[in-house]
Nucleic acid binder design. Structure first.
Lengths: 153, 153
DNA sequence: TTCAGTGCAAAAACTTTGCAGGAGG
DNA sequence: CCTCCTGCAAAGTTTTTGCACTGAA
């Protein structure tokens, strides 16, 4: 049984439409990427694939993540640590992130008001918005959340 | 005549209070940093100082920028290009950024509503906020803004 | 005098690029 | 058969670290 049928169908359509080739490596990256429940880095994904005896190269992983972002199966996120984080965005609602600067724990939240502000500011300044990034940084009040502390990582 | 007297006073106070030493290198970094009108990167600042025959090392530049951020003379910004941007925050009001993904031009804006959302979400999720990051990405409607296009960069 | 701070260079972390060979269309 | 894609390794970019020396307190 196939693992991520809907996403694969979507990706196939995208590749065809954009005249990119359908290669097994690209779907291998898709599979490993969607196996993450949360955020991951490009290199982290590459390492994980290597450990699972995959033969894909760094170049292919980085290239494919870019394609998956273009067709909106994945989304890029930046949490201020100078690396690109990816997350599945396939069939997911827009959301933003709250990051604990002590334990690194990331909580997702949704607020309708944010897109309104984006539109409002953009109109005011004569700008065509294509996206935004909103992160809140701080500390878990509940010490249980901060148990990730020694988690290695 | 001294160049950034207020900031220097502030920095001196901070260093004393935190039991860090007062060194000429740290004030040299401060001077070069405040000479920027807009955002700059750590390495960029280091290169600029080198070209101006300064003798400071990378380690000192990075270290000092961290200290200047701690005492809020500078602020770190992340615009999604995997490098840390710094800007002067001394005596400046809070603001956020609107980034043209075509020409790279950055426009600042202010909206009181954003902090309210931060507080609202944080309360709701049991989180103590220490800061936030809000960037809008898109395209200058006015083609004149996009003249930065060939600007080198 | 003492040890935090410094310069230097090397390493680290993440990403991009060049090239030769291989496979998708 | 063409050329896009791939693997590999090397290089690029930004940041961090180790070490011996220096200078602020």
């Amino acid at each position: 049984m196939e693992k991520h049928p809907k996403a694969k169908e979507e990706f196939t359509g995208f590749l065809r439409q954009q005249k990119h080739r359908i290669t097994p490596e690209r779907f291998e990256v898709l599979d490993f990427a969607l196996d993450y429940d949360d955020h991951f880095g490009a290199d982290e994904l590459y390492i994980k694939m290597k450990m699972n005896k995959s033969n894909v190269s760094r170049a292919t992983v980085y290239n494919t993540l870019e394609l998956l972002t273009q067709c909106e199966i994945l989304a890029k996120r930046h949490f201020g640590d100078n690396k690109t984080h990816y997350e599945a965005s396939f069939n997911r609602k827009n959301h933003d992130h709250l990051i604990c600067t002590t334990c690194g724990h990331i909580t997702e939240f949704r607020s309708e008001k944010i897109q309104k502000i984006v539109d409002e500011i953009s109109t005011e300044l004569g700008f065509t918005p294509s996206g935004y990034s909103f992160n809140i940084f701080g500390f878990c009040k509940d010490k249980n959340h901060c148990s990730h502390f020694d988690d290695n990582g």
